[in-house]
Design a protein around this nucleic acid. Structure first.
Length: 892
RNA sequence: AGGCACGUACGUCAAUGGUAGACGGCUUCCCUUACAAGGAAGAGGUUGGGGGUUCGAAUCCCUCCGUGCCUACCA
């Protein structure tokens, strides 16, 4: 079989996914074991408008690793994919397309516009589903959901109606965040606050029946046209006598009262605040407390209303600001203007400055829901956040301060609110229009024009996607889901709301664990964002280094914020190449051999040391992998795999088995060695598979022999995806420690070669003294290996070392010693210096340890084990120093 | 403004209170070897500064400096 020297990721990425998907490997039905445990994840649904970014790639990698691991471990595994209709983004995107045709959504009307969005969705939405296939995400596409699907929409209506019936959803007139651009209300979480350089204007208001004036400071002078009061702190001596006085509001002919309210900070500005209940959330609250009227002077397009007065009506809010300031100046009432930095609220989507407005909206009361979630946390400590700090606290604190949720949006794209109005103004909330007509007793009803916040449907995602409110088989089987993987910025928007609705409507938590991923930053530690143009496109990285290398890089990010570092991906690309070439070697010499799992079962003692050892290492690695994955320790898991494959398997095992495997003459021993190599490789590929699905499948398919699936998947077409994840058999401490001795021996000799600058052509003799007969035998059995790996022409093993004076020596253990005669090979003076340096270093360490032991407190208070360790280490150092002294003397 | 994290080798990150590691990079050596997208070896850190608790601190506490995030909002 021809195998190229370099791994070509694109080649491997081409065919496997399509085959996996076509054969139904991703669907839980592939599992034939009726008793199988269940594992399920609902994907955080990406926006239908979205395309893959690093955050997705990171989350998807982690979810795929978990799902593939559980699937291979025999779990009936479901990773359910889907998309979010993303109300505002999607509506904006389609509106923009319309604009290019010179039309607005209003030209089409609601029905046609919504139809147009669906067309867009069919034709160009969901790019991300194509990209997810590239990632290798093993999601069950047969269960793919969209938040606007009929079944999910039904769940939305059901929840709305039930909450309305319980009085938890209500319609109210309140101050809200209004986006004049998108023409919709926004929740607090959809508003971002940005620092902004602005000005603070000091305006003087005359007091009626007096020549006093009261000065208020404001960043928004135009709102003064809607002032209905001036507030001061009740304890502020400066204004005490003015409380209850009447202010003549300039530019208008209104008279407004001076009120006292604790909200006012006497330290700030002048200590007197203008109160505009209709256009500021705090003023709104104050207005409520003092029964102040609300005068609306700014409309939904951020233009001044008729109530702002004739001169201002129709002006843009910023034009009005200039005009108000001019007029104050003309009246001599503008005290001063100072530069001032404050934060300004902007629409998260379109960046337009938010206008707080009083508006009739639908709200959801959160107190009962919040208590359900808080109870779950205090009672069962659920959901379990990984990492627990700080997220558990952040989550709990946020819940404790939760306010009512504004759930209506003035959009056309979304779930239209299931509320209807009769001509007499009665409100009917129902599951369908028919039901509403029946309830109304008339056909003359009109539906509320608003839609629900996108997050309303997202909040139901873990159960609505499984069929709720029907009691489906899927819901019964896969709910609650096992784990939620998410970025930290949607803990409030999404995670907490899923917990609350899950508990309310299914009586169960929607997931047990919440894994909060870190953030991938750019090379300078900045967040990647579209506006900064500093994002790295995962697809470009896939093209450059391959999907598997990228996944490995992302997997080890885990929960920490990490700067993007292409070098890291490059090193994992090299790792993939290493895997490729190790397999290439095994396959090059696979004639007469095949994968035989039973070769790894035997623990019989006539196996060669390196064989016993690699089996032990494989078992230990498998155990570590399972433990790490179950604990969500992805960083550790990647490290474990990397070292096992590169260090243990490639650097040592292949090198030690090479002479048997590459032997020219066919023999039972050669076939065994070849088969064992293939079998260990096959197991290693399985361990790697959840992280590197493509290269492992590509190579696994090429391995000859018996490669059974996990029993739960015995009927399926061959794929590494459905083999059993190695659980790890017995450990073999003897093999590990004996092999370690051999490794130390070979490394030690190589070290000597390197330190003395010996050329590979310099033939050396290695003298080894090992008093223990058992160990001596082990080493003797590996003489040929040692010769090959150290470039020694002769190896002499005896019970007691006798070496010529001028030899490089090192201690293998406290009793075992190795020497390489150097006569004629090195510069003795240079060498003496080097040994002295080494000795100093050891003496330093010994001194430190002795200091520790000399401290009576250490001896009495530290655990005996630690004291013993220190003493042992000192003894070891003493021996090493003695050996060094000996060597130095020998060089003289 | 409050709250919360973080600061470890040149870079990115590890390390149940037990005396600091990995990978990449770097230096040296090696293209007759499955892999130059490679191999072998080596150098490199008083864990941001200062103080405290402790037999023992990267780890716990205080403080300063720096960075990031979150919440609130100052009219």
């Amino acid at each position: 079989m021809e195998i190229p020297k370099q791994y070509d990721p694109k080649q491997a990425e081409q065919h496997h996914y399509e085959r996996w998907e076509r054969n139904g490997f991703f669907a839980p039905e592939i599992n034939q074991d009726p008793e199988a445990p269940v594992f399920s994840i609902a994907i955080p649904p990406p926006n239908v408008t979205g395309s893959l970014h690093m955050g997705h790639a990171l989350q998807h990698t982690l979810m795929d690793v978990m799902t593939r691991h559980k699937r291979m471990s025999g779990f009936r595994s479901l990773w359910l994919p889907g998309m979010d209709h993303a109300g505002i983004s999607t509506q904006l995107m389609v509106s923009r397309a319309l604009k290019k045709e010179g039309k607005s959504r209003h030209d089409l009307g609601r029905e046609l516009f919504v139809e147009r969005v669906w067309t867009w969705k069919r034709e160009s939405g969901g790019q991300i589903t194509v990209q997810m296939r590239r990632e290798g995400a093993s999601v069950d596409w047969s269960r793919e959901k969209f938040t606007m699907d009929e079944d999910l929409s039904r769940a939305v209506r059901e929840v709305f109606v039930r909450l309305y019936e319980e009085g938890m959803i209500y319609r109210g007139n309140r101050i809200v965040n209004w986006c004049p651009q998108d023409q919709t209300v926004l929740s607090d979480l959809e508003v971002e606050k940005l620092p902004q350089a602005g000005k603070l204007y000091f305006l003087q208001y005359p007091i009626k029946g007096s020549d006093r004036r009261i000065t208020v400071a404001t960043t928004r002078p135009e709102t003064m046209l809607g002032d209905t009061g001036v507030a001061v702190n009740p304890n502020d001596e400066r204004y005490r006598e003015l409380v209850g006085a009447i202010v003549l509001l300039p530019l208008t002919n209104r008279e407004i009262p001076v009120i006292a309210d604790d909200f006012v900070d006497p330290e700030f500005g002048t200590g007197a605040v203008k109160v505009t209940p209709a256009h500021d959330p705090n003023d709104y609250d104050m207005g409520e407390r003092h029964n102040l009227p609300q005068v609306v002077v700014i409309d939904t397009f951020a233009k001044m209303t008729a109530d702002a007065g004739e001169r201002f009506a129709g002006l843009d809010r910023y034009k009005a600001r200039e005009k108000v300031v001019e007029e104050f100046e003309a009246l001599g009432l503008l005290e001063k203007v100072i530069d001032y930095e404050f934060s300004i609220s902007k629409c998260e989507r379109c960046k337009t400055v938010i206008e707080p407005l009083i508006s009739t909206q639908w709200f959801m009361k959160m107190d009962q829901l919040r208590d359900l979630a808080l109870d779950l946390m205090s009672r069962e400590h659920q959901p379990r956040f990984v990492p627990e700090t700080p997220y558990e606290k952040i989550y709990t604190n946020w819940l404790e301060n939760l306010r009512d949720w504004t759930i209506s949006r003035q959009l056309w794209w979304g779930h239209q609110i299931p509320a209807w109005y009769t001509s007499t103004g009665a409100v009917i909330v129902a599951r369908s229009e028919e039901e509403a007509r029946e309830m109304a007793g008339t056909a003359e009803i009109t539906q509320d024009q608003d839609v629900l916040d996108t997050w309303f449907s997202s909040a139901l995602w873990p159960f609505s996607t499984l069929g709720w409110p029907e009691e489906t088989k899927d819901l019964e089987t896969f709910y609650p889901t096992s784990v939620l993987v998410t970025a930290r910025d949607i803990i409030f928007l999404w995670v907490s709301r899923m917990v609350m609705t899950g508990l309310k409507f299914t009586g169960k938590k929607p997931f047990s664990d919440v894994f909060v991923t870190g953030t991938i930053l750019d090379a300078h530690g900045q967040r990647m964002s579209k506006t900064k143009m500093n994002g790295v496109d995962p697809l470009d990285v896939f093209d450059k280094f391959g999907v598997d290398a990228t996944r490995l890089t992302l997997a080890q990010v885990g929960t920490t914020d990490t700067r993007w570092n292409e070098k890291q991906v490059e090193s994992y690309r090299n790792f993939a190449n290493k895997i490729w070439n190790a397999a290439r070697f095994a396959l090059l010499y696979s004639e007469g051999a095949e994968v035989k799992p039973e070769l790894l079962q035997s623990t019989n003692a006539d196996l060669a040391l390196h064989d016993r050892w690699i089996i032990a290492r494989l078992n230990k690695t498998a155990r570590e992998m399972n433990a790490a994955l179950d604990a969500y320790e992805f960083h550790g898991a990647v490290q474990t795999l990397y070292h096992f494959f590169w260090d243990d398997f490639c650097d040592w095992y292949i090198e030690l088995t090479k002479s048997d495997v590459t032997s020219d003459t066919p023999s039972a021993q050669r076939s065994q060695a070849r088969s064992r190599l293939l079998t260990v490789l096959e197991h290693a590929l399985r361990l790697l598979h959840p992280f590197m699905p493509y290269i492992t499948e590509e190579l696994w398919q090429r391995l000859p022999g018996e490669k059974p699936h996990h029993p739960a998947y015995s009927n399926a077409e061959p794929t590494i995806m459905l083999t059993a994840y190695p659980q790890g058999g017995p450990v073999d401490d003897a093999a590990e420690s004996e092999m370690q001795t051999l490794i130390n021996l070979i490394s030690g000799v190589r070290n000597i070669r390197s330190e003395y600058n010996l050329k590979p052509s310099d033939k050396i003799t290695v003298l080894i003294g090992i008093p223990n007969a058992g160990l001596r035998k082990v080493i003797e059995e590996n003489t040929d290996q040692m010769k090959r790996l150290t470039g020694a022409s002769a190896i002499d093993i005896s019970a007691n070392l006798s070496a010529p004076k001028a030899s490089a020596k090192f201690l293998l253990t406290s009793t075992d010693e190795v020497a390489v005669p150097l006569e004629g090979l090195v510069d003795f003076a240079e060498e003496t210096k080097r040994l002295e340096r080494k000795k100093e270093k050891l003496q330093g360490e010994a001194k430190k340890l002795q200091g520790q032991l000399a401290n009576p407190d250490f001896a009495s208070r530290a655990p005996a084990e630690k004291v013993q360790q220190a003493q042992d280490r000192i003894k070891e150092i003493e021996l090493q120093i003695k050996a060094l002294d000996q060597s130095i003397e020998n060089l003289q």
